[in-house]
């Protein structure tokens, strides 16, 4: 497996080289491919599969080249959507909601291991996905969301809070399944590099490509990402248009469809589910720590009470501990 990752990393490098070279003409890309092929040959001594992987990589390189030409821009995003074992029903519902909202998402079965996340890169590759949304449930209470650009990264880890799913009755809106949303970002996203990066990744994930198979025409919902309190707030609204007949344009209003959730950035990794940390949120306090503090506070209360009792007993003892009277035993 390590080998394969190596291959991926090297192919990434070759891609990097191409991007860096502004003149990205045929020759350099050819060189890159050549390097790749030589790599593949070296590796193929052990495993045939790896060669295949390399070839697919090659194809991807070609497609990326095409993307560089201005007229043929195609937003090719496919998302692999999956979760870890041990998520709660609410978390599962949230995931199925996202699946309903993202026609370009492919849902995969639950991931067994929480430690070997790099498997996801291969899984995504198998599913022909270049994005991955991975929900990681911990302790049956906390939910973490990974957004990753597989296979080369970056990946972002969020802590998800304040989850409201679509099935809640107070979220009354509805929209076509598979209609392409308008994705709205708060301007704070352009303020810092890490938010910029997050915005880009969110855009890749939540803006539906025009080429996706299951899309429907018309625009009837808006997805908003807003930053408040150092967190990213997700909302999904239905666009309702009412025709008065008086005005030229129909009057527009929004009704919330759901789901709702709040994302707090924990880290941004250089690679996909691996790599060095590019950003780490200093404000993030893990839910474990919060719970610990709460417990500590509770125990403090108890401890003070116990200590008080102890002091009382001590004082009583001191009071009772009178100096012995020498005449006490005289008359016995």
């Amino acid at each position: 497996m390590g080998k394969r990752r190596e291959v991926i990393a090297s192919s990434k490098q070759s891609i990097d080289m191409e991007y860096d070279d502004s003149s990205s003409d045929e020759e350099t890309s050819y060189l890159g491919k050549k390097a790749l092929l030589s790599m593949a040959q070296q590796n193929s001594n052990e495993d045939e599969m790896e060669v295949e992987v390399d070839e697919t990589k090659d194809k991807k390189v070609e497609t990326k080249e095409k993307d560089n030409q201005p007229k043929e821009f195609k937003n090719r995003q496919r998302i692999m959507l999956l979760c870890s074992r041990g998520i709660t029903a609410r978390h599962r519902h949230l995931m199925s909601d996202l699946q309903a909202l993202l026609p370009h998402a492919k849902k995969d079965s639950k991931l067994d291991s929480k430690s070997r996340l790099y498997i996801l890169n291969e899984l995504a590759d198998i599913n022909n996905c270049n994005n991955c949304i991975y929900f990681e449930g911990r302790k049956h209470t906390d939910l973490y969301m990974w957004l990753s650009k597989t296979p080369n990264g970056p990946s972002i880890k969020f802590h998800v809070t304040n989850i409201h799913t679509m099935s809640e009755l107070h979220l009354t809106g509805n929209c076509l399944k598979g209609s392409r949303p308008i994705v709205s970002f708060d301007k704070t996203f352009d303020s810092t590099p890490h938010y910029k990066l997050i915005k880009e990744v969110l855009l890749h994930n939540f803006s539906t490509p025009t080429t996706s198979r299951r899309i429907k025409p018309f625009v009837d919902h808006v997805i908003t990402f807003s930053i408040a309190d150092g967190r990213i707030w997700f909302r999904n609204y239905q666009i309702v248009e009412k025709d008065d007949g008086t005005k030229k344009e129909k009057e527009m209003s929004l009704v919330e469809i759901g789901p709702r959730f709040v994302l707090q950035v924990m880290r941004i990794f250089d690679g996909s589910f691996c790599g060095s940390t590019l950003y780490k949120n200093g404000d993030f306090v893990s839910p474990n720590a919060i719970r610990r503090f709460q417990k500590q506070e509770m125990s403090m209360k108890y401890n003070t009470r116990v200590n008080k009792n102890l002091e009382h007993v001590k004082r009583l003892e001191e009071a009772n501990n009178l100096p012995s009277d020498p005449l006490d035993e005289v008359f016995q």
């Binding site: 991007y19 195609k74 625009v219």
Partner: peptide
């Protein structure tokens, strides 16, 4: 590193013109 990563993955790299309808992204300026 963040900037570099951003430049690597961004869709609207210089020289690439993306029609708005491809992404339907709007930034709220207020």
């Amino acid at each position: 590193a963040l900037n570099k990563r951003y430049n690597e993955i961004r869709l609207d790299t210089p020289g690439v013109k993306i029609p708005w309808i491809e992404l339907q992204a709007i930034t709220y300026n207020k």
